[in-house]
């Protein structure tokens, strides 16, 4: 189980040297989304980052920069939908099932985790 989960993650986010793109807005707030299949568009004064996690919308006026990162920083890009997630440690130990990714972030101790959504997608999640 752990093996398949790990390989699944490797085949997605970890396929790139930089699994994440982090957007920084005024005030030093960072927003991170998975780089996999990321598409960015601009409309209505906003930058919209479409990723497997859902859409991240940021005001262009507040947007200062973006960059590729190897680790998730700040709050992960919001996964659309509120489905339950299962969280595993990097060692493959199941940490628990949460009603949403946000709940997992709020409950888990600081560390790096693998999150599996109910749609089968996985991502690497850093909780700070």
């Amino acid at each position: 189980m752990v093996l398949f989960l790990t390989l699944g993650w490797a085949a997605t986010a970890a396929a790139f040297d930089y699994p994440f793109v982090t957007f920084s807005t005024q005030g030093g707030v960072a927003h991170t989304v998975a780089a996999e299949e990321l598409v960015i568009t601009f409309a209505g004064g906003k930058m919209i980052a479409h990723s497997a996690q859902g859409d991240l919308k940021l005001e262009l006026q507040a947007l200062e920069k973006m960059c590729f990162t190897t680790e998730q920083s700040g709050v992960s890009g919001v996964k659309s939908g509120s489905g339950a997630v299962r969280v595993y440690s990097m060692q493959g130990v199941e940490m628990g099932t949460y009603s949403s990714q946000n709940e997992a972030v709020s409950r888990l101790p600081q560390g790096l985790y693998i999150v599996k959504h109910d749609d089968g997608s996985t991502l690497k999640l850093a909780v700070r």
Binding site: E36, V39, I40, L60, L63, E64, K65, M66, C67
Partner: peptide, 27 residues
């Protein structure tokens, strides 16, 4: 670091893009 300036310009590796002209950015 890819910088946004004045909500109108995105600069990557010294290349300024008018945001209004960008159709999309994809990876």
């Amino acid at each position: 670091e890819m910088t946004y300036t004045g909500a109108t310009t995105l600069t990557i590796l010294g290349r300024d893009f008018a945001i209004a002209e960008i159709d999309s950015i994809y990876i």
